[in-house]
Design a protein around this nucleic acid. Structure first.
Length: 291
DNA sequence: CACTTGACCTGTCCGC
DNA sequence: TGCGGACAGGTCAAGT
């Protein structure tokens, strides 16, 4: 599910809701979702105060006063939902929420908080996880060693994007965009949306993409990520923010999940194909395969 | 090494 | 209605 805009939206919500609170208790029914040694949990998590909530790529980091952090990957269907203790953690905003009373059958981890609220890690497909690690060790984790730059960072230029993409010059541009070691945080939605914005066919080999096209892709990617964050991200099936509310970006999407509908720029019917093993959406008139 | 394909899970939808 | 297969916002490990 969640790509950079969705994870950033969750981060902002958790930052506002959790900072200053103490974790009173935690429970989990699935070791893969919460694979931490009970002794570490007891010593470094229970009784710890939340100091900050950060994000790198699609990973959330909840920093604790014990110098440990909870790092969280939502993968395809993960949710982090805060619920105040009114009426047994029932849905607070039924009109905006995708989910009802918690816990439900996709709840994998429950955090009890010092304000009487609970934080629920829900994850239908069990791909996601919550791990407790020493904060100082996070930079040494393999993923963080390899992950590429943040595309919305102030120091991220189109030349840097070109240089990063060249690491995968013999593959197609969509696979390169999805590669987290090239650029952090891009997933299937924003790969398709940014390639449409720059009028580049997703199967084009990186080495055939011109500087002009990379400049256009750079701008399209940053614009669409910022627009999506401003709309609270994209909700297709599962994604919700820290209060359980849907994101509103998909009503602004130009091609993603819009096969059969007209291209907003030229009216040609949008097509769906498969690239890099993923469902892929293009305007077949403006995004041509031969370079 | 660079690159592609399956596997990890659960649920839903679509065609027969 | 039932059943099988494809597919779903992500990443790894294992193939070639």
């Amino acid at each position: 599910m969640p790509e950079l805009p969705e994870v950033e939206t969750v981060r902002r919500g958790l930052s506002r809701l959790l900072e200053g609170l103490v974790i009173i208790a935690v429970s989990s029914d699935n070791p893969k979702s919460f694979p931490n040694a009970p002794a570490d949990v007891e010593q470094f998590m229970i009784g710890a105060q939340v100091v900050a909530v950060k994000r790198r790529a699609k990973v959330l980091m909840i920093e604790l006063s014990t110098k440990y952090s909870l790092i969280i990957h939502l993968k395809m269907t993960g949710q982090m939902v805060y619920r105040a203790d009114n009426e047994r953690f029932g849905a607070g905003h039924p009109n905006d929420s995708l989910i009802g009373e918690l816990p439900d059958r996709s709840t994998r981890v429950i955090f009890d908080l010092s304000d009487g609220a609970r934080l629920f890690f829900n994850d239908q497909r069990k791909f996601g996880w919550v791990r407790l690690v020493p904060t100082a060790e996070i930079p040494m984790i393999d993923f963080f060693q390899k992950v590429g730059p943040e595309p919305l960072g102030n120091d991220f230029t189109w030349e840097i994007m070109r240089e990063r993409l060249q690491r995968r010059k013999n593959t197609n541009i969509k696979a390169a965009l999805l590669d987290q070691s090239v650029i952090a945080g891009v997933g299937n939605i924003y790969a398709d949306e940014s390639l449409w914005g720059a009028k580049i066919h997703p199967k084009r080999l990186v080495k055939t993409v011109t500087d002009q096209e990379i400049k256009a892709l750079y701008k399209a990617l940053r614009d669409v990520l910022e627009l999506s964050i401003s709309k609270g991200g994209s909700t297709d099936q599962h994604y919700v923010d820290a209060e359980g509310k849907r994101g509103k970006y998909l009503t602004f999407a130009n091609v993603f999940r819009r096969e059969g509908q007209p291209c907003p720029r030229c009216g040609t019917i949008i097509e769906k194909l498969r690239v890099a093993g993923r469902g892929t959406h293009i305007c077949p008139k403006e995004q041509v395969e031969q370079s």
